[in-house]
Design a protein around this nucleic acid. Structure first.
Lengths: 276, 276
DNA sequence: CGTCCAATTGATTCCGGTCAATGCTGGTGG
DNA sequence: CCACCAGCATTGACCGGAATCAATTGGACG
C-alpha cells in the first residue's frame, strides 16, 4: 500500500486525501519536536509508521506492552471492559499524544482506532535505549505526561460536576478543538463542521452517561439550534460560542488575571527558599 | 519548633508522635530513591522541610508556581473553586507524591494540608537545574507522573460509573490503603482503624456527590455493620473484605491471568517491529 | 450551660437510567 | 433501481437514586 518513500516514510491516501508523510507532520508538538537532527535520525531508525482503519484494533487488555506509539493523525480510544459487559472509554487520544510509557509489562486497556489513523510505533526495548541516549526525548515525554495529567483532571471535574447536557456540549467542544489533528472536520471562524468519530454509545461511555441520554441532549441542542445534523454522524455548529455557553466551561477555567479569588484571609505557605 | 538536626533535617512532634526526620523517610519510593549519594547531597542542598498543620494553606489558584514539593508525610488536597462557589477536590495527594512539574508558571489549583503534613520543598529554578544534572531524577519523576496518570484513570472510572455507596466505599478503601503514609490510622490484618482526613463536604467534593448523600451512605454502611464510628471522624472497619465487596473494585482491576477476555475475534495490530 | 457548626435524617423533587416502541439510514441483494 | 433488512438512533413512559430543601441532633468549646 505504500506509494512512495520520503525520508523512509510513506505517502498514502487516507480518507480520500493524499497525504505526504515527510519526516513528521507533528512539527515540534510531538516527541520528535524535542530532538536535534542526529537524535531524530536515531529515533527514526527504530520507528515504523502504521495506518489503521476506523474501528481497527491496536491492542487488547492483557496484551504484552512491547511497543509504544504516538498518534500522528486521527484518534485512538482507550477503553476498559467492565464487569457488567459494558465498556468505559478511559481516554480519547489524538495527536500528538504519546502512549504511553507505563511501567508494567501488560496493557491495562484496549486500544482502537476511532477514525482512520496514522501511528508512529516504537518497539519497547530499542525505544527505551534511545530514551537513555537522548535526555531531551525523556524531557519531552515527561512534559507531555504532565499535560495529559492536567487534562485528565479537567475531565474528572466534568464527570464529577456536570450534568448531561453540559457533558455532551463539552465533548463536542473537545472535538472541535482537535478537529484538525483528528481529521474529523473543519473550523472556520466561529463555526465548525465535524464528523463525529464516536457513535452515541461511545460518547456515553466516555461521558459516564447512557446512549439514550446522549441522544436526548443532542436532540435538545438541535432543537435550540445550537447544532445541526446533516447525517447522524455529521454535525455543524454555526456558533461555537453558544456551545461554550451551554458547556459552562468558564467554571473549568483558571481565574483570569488579577481579579482572582479572595483568599479568605489565609496566608499561603511561607517558603524561605534557598536563593537562586 | 525544630528540636534537633540530623543530616540537616529536623526532628519534631507530629500528631503526638515524635518523628525523627533523618535523610528521607520515603525510602526509595520518593524522588530521592532514584539518586546516588552525590546526587542526593546535591538535591538536599536545595530542599527545605516544611511542616503544615491540618487545614493550612500551601498555595492558592493563580499564585506563582515558584516551587515544587513532595509529600513526606500526611496528605494534601488539591482543589479548584467552581463558579457556583463550591469546590471540587481535584486530587488527594499522599506520600511519596511529587507535585508537580507543570509547565505553566501559575498554580491551577489550591493546595491545603488535609492533615498535619510534612513536605519537602524545592524552589523551581534550582530544582530544574538539579534535574538537568541528574537524569535519574527526571526518570523517577516521569515514572511517578505515569503512575499518577494511571490512578487518575481509575478515579475517572469511579466518577463515571459508580453509584454513591460504591464511591464512598472506594474512598474509604483508598484511605485504608495509604493509612501508613498519611498517618491517619492503622491496619492490622483484615481490619482497620482510621481518622478521616476529610469532613463530609470534602468527601462529597472528592466523589462528585453532595454531603448529605455521603452521610447517608456512611450511615448505611454503619447499619450494615461494615463500618463503625467512635466519633464523627474516627471509623473502624472490622472486615475490610466486606468493604471491598461493596466498592465493587473487581470491576476496576485488570483481567486476571489467562482467563482474560475473548477478543471477539479481532486481531491486534501486526507490528513487524524492527529487531531488538 | 448555651452556642455554633458539622452531621444526620426526613420530605420532596428532578435528572438520568431503564425498558420498550418506533424511526431512520446505509448497505445488500433481488 | 428499488425493497428489504440490520443496526444505530430517537423518542416515550416510567422508575429510582441522588440532589435539594429543611428540620433536628449531637459534639466541641467557651
Amino acid at each position: 500500500m505504500a506509494e512512495s518513500y520520503i525520508n523512509g516514510f510513506e505517502s498514502r491516501t487516507i480518507g480520500g486525501i493524499r497525504r505526504t508523510l515527510s519526516s513528521c507532520r507533528l512539527g515540534d508538538r510531538g516527541i520528535c519536536g524535542a530532538l536535534d537532527d542526529s537524535a531524530l535520525s536515531d529515533l527514526k531508525k527504530i520507528s515504523r509508521r502504521r495506518f489503521i482503519q476506523e474501528g481497527g484494533v491496536i491492542f487488547h487488555e492483557g496484551d504484552e506492552a512491547d511497543y509504544f506509539f504516538s498518534i500522528v493523525f486521527g484518534a485512538v480510544k482507550l477503553s476498559t471492559s467492565l464487569a457488567d459487559g459494558r465498556q468505559h472509554i478511559v481516554e480519547f487520544l489524538y495527536p500528538p499524544s504519546f502512549h504511553s510509557l507505563h511501567i508494567e509489562s501488560r496493557r491495562h486497556h484496549n486500544a482502537h482506532a476511532a477514525v482512520d489513523a496514522e501511528l508512529c510505533i516504537y518497539a519497547r526495548n530499542p525505544f527505551e535505549r534511545c530514551l537513555s541516549r537522548h535526555i531531551e526525548l525523556e524531557h519531552k515525554l515527561f512534559e507531555m505526561a504532565i499535560l495529559e495529567l492536567e487534562r485528565s483532571r479537567v475531565r474528572m471535574l466534568i464527570l464529577a460536576r456536570k450534568n448531561s447536557l453540559e457533558r455532551v456540549a463539552s465533548l463536542l467542544l473537545m472535538l472541535i478543538e482537535y478537529v484538525q489533528d483528528i481529521g474529523c472536520g473543519t473550523v472556520r471562524g466561529n463555526s465548525a463542521v465535524l464528523r463525529l468519530p464516536l457513535n452515541r454509545a461511545e460518547m456515553a461511555d466516555y461521558l459516564g452517561l447512557t446512549l439514550e441520554t446522549v441522544s436526548r441532549q443532542l436532540s435538545l441542542l438541535k432543537r435550540r439550534r445550537i447544532i445541526e445534523f446533516s447525517s447522524r454522524r455529521d454535525v455543524s455548529i454555526p456558533d461555537v460560542k453558544q456551545l461554550v455557553e451551554v458547556a459552562k466551561v468558564e467554571a473549568l477555567n483558571r481565574p483570569k488575571s488579577g481579579l482572582a479569588l479572595h483568599h479568605g484571609g489565609q496566608r499561603a505557605l511561607a517558603l524561605g527558599m534557598p536563593d537562586q
